[in-house]
Design a protein around this nucleic acid. Structure first.
Length: 423
RNA sequence: GGUGAGGUGGGUGAGUGGCUUAAACCACCAGUUUGCUAAACUGACGAACGGGAAACUGUUCCGGGGGUUCGAAUCCCCCCCUCACCGCCA
């Protein structure tokens, strides 16, 4: 959620930034400011009256204590009248605040000025590419066929147990997944991220804190009996560790990493492009999260982005880095890089990581603040990124490394798998 | 699931209707002094929002929501959560 104080102060800049998403920023901001001005006038009126009432109350107290009972009784009447008029003023202010809040909740984060304008994925900017498309041998097939051929991932079995999008990993397939998770976690540890194991179910407050609620309500699995949500990403529980917290400046930057399964309903996305591991309801992911001081947050975004590139390079995967255009960014992000790996047998790019700076958009909701050098509390900036999401990495590794003899395991993973070929 | 006890500032925790501007202690911060991984002393120290150029000032906030009252952390009602014990159980 955008900060109202910031909107008041930097109206033009924010309007311009919203326009990067293809929205009418001027109109939105103008609407907010108009509501805000109206609300503040009302609030001042209410507070003046409250002050008067408080003053009367202490006068009444003094009179009773000095034995002037009649005078006190007279003031009581006046005080009761003030209370009456306060009642309607208070509801007015409450309604006005609610109206403003509702409006603010519908406004997405303001893109950073470096974000390209645009509305569709085609307008994303390719920043860089690494590696080259592998030359596959003649018998090369997509990963879902490899999965069946080597009996490492069973999609039908998952359908029996649960439904589509819940695959069962078997044998070397299961070990391969576990090896990747372990590799990603160890790398994160080496890069200074503290590992956490958060709960996989969260309450509604946490959902609101990181912005999944009310925006993406339908995308999360919900346990009605206990009113809890299955996490769609570790971003939710890990970032919410810092909800309602005032940090000391010396604690920043906070760097956390966590592995969790992720659960997504993916309502409405069916079709050929969801085949195999391309889109699942349950998948594994290692997530990195940072809570930092505002002034350095964009440098941190670059660090995180470079860190994820390093992982892909160690795995030897051909990838490209995209700077998302305004219209393709998530609701809460100010700047997002996507990483896409090349899937050699499907001959297309697969998104495997998304790294974003949220500036104060999440921390404003989370009330995640820190005490700066002057001792003032200030909202921190939050960032996160996938490092990495497993299924599409697995898909790319299976497809790109397939040979007539089997699937070659990348060197960096061999210490974790204990085998060099899936065959 | 049963029974009981609780929810107060960054933390511990006092506070049963107005003198609370929320005590005290701890932590954090600043300073002084002594000097070796630090201690002692002194001082400052809740948050959000509003008004003001500023000094300053107003309002709200003691789990959440209602109510009683001129006045509520304090009294009443509803809800939520936590802890302890018992039961069940990995």
């Amino acid at each position: 959620m955008l900060q109202i104080a910031n909107i008041r102060k930097n109206a033009n800049e924010l309007a311009e930034r919203l326009a990067i998403r293809g929205l009418d920023g001027q109109a939105l901001i103008a609407q907010v400011i108009e509501l805000d001005e109206r609300n503040r006038a009302k609030r001042t009126e209410m507070e003046t009256l409250q002050a008067k009432g408080n003053q009367l109350s202490s006068q009444i107290r003094d009179m009773y204590q000095s034995g002037q009972k009649d005078a006190g009784d007279a003031l009581k009447l006046e005080s009761a009248q003030i209370k009456d008029s306060l009642k309607s003023l208070e509801t007015d202010v409450e309604l006005a605040d609610k109206e403003l809040l509702q409006l603010l909740l519908t406004i997405p984060n303001t893109p950073s000025m470096e974000v390209p304008k645009g509305k569709t994925p085609e307008e994303n900017q390719e920043v860089s590419q690494w590696g080259a498309k592998p030359d596959l041998y003649d018998g090369a097939v997509p990963h879902w066929e490899l999965a069946a051929k080597y009996d490492i991932i069973d999609f039908e079995l998952g359908v029996k147990l649960t439904g589509a999008g819940f695959p069962v990993y078997k044998g070397k397939g299961a070990i391969f997944q576990r090896a990747l998770i372990q590799f990603f976690l160890n790398e994160a540890g080496k890069a200074g991220y503290m590992e956490v194991q958060p709960p996989l179910l969260v309450n509604a407050d946490s959902g609101y804190g990181t912005g999944q609620l009310p925006d993406k309500e339908g995308q999360m699995y919900h346990c009605g009996v206990d009113d809890l949500y299955l996490i769609p990403t570790a971003e939710v529980p890990i970032t919410n560790l810092y909800r309602d917290v005032i940090l000391n400046e010396s604690q920043l930057p906070i760097k956390n990493a966590g592995y969790t399964p992720c659960f997504r309903r993916e309502a409405g996305s069916y079709g050929a492009h969801v085949r195999g591991l391309n889109r699942l309801h349950q998948f594994d992911k290692v997530e990195i999260v940072q809570i930092v001081k505002p002034e350095g947050s964009y440098a941190v975004l670059e660090d995180m982005q470079n860190y994820v590139q390093g992982l892909l390079q160690k795995l030897g995967l051909h990838y490209r880095v995209l700077l998302l255009c305004g219209g393709d960014m998530g609701f809460t992000s100010a700047k997002t890089y996507d990483m896409e790996v090349w899937s050699a047998a499907q001959e297309k790019w697969l998104e495997c990581s998304s790294i974003s700076n949220f500036e104060t958009f999440q921390t404003n909701r989370l009330k995640c603040r820190y005490r700066n050098a002057e001792g003032k509390t200030e909202l921190a900036h939050s960032l996160n990124g996938s490092a990495l999401a497993l299924p599409r990495i697995v898909a790319a590794l299976l497809e790109n490394n397939q040979t007539a003899e089997g699937i070659r395991v990348p060197d960096v993973l061999v210490p974790y798998t204990g085998f060099t070929f899936i065959n």
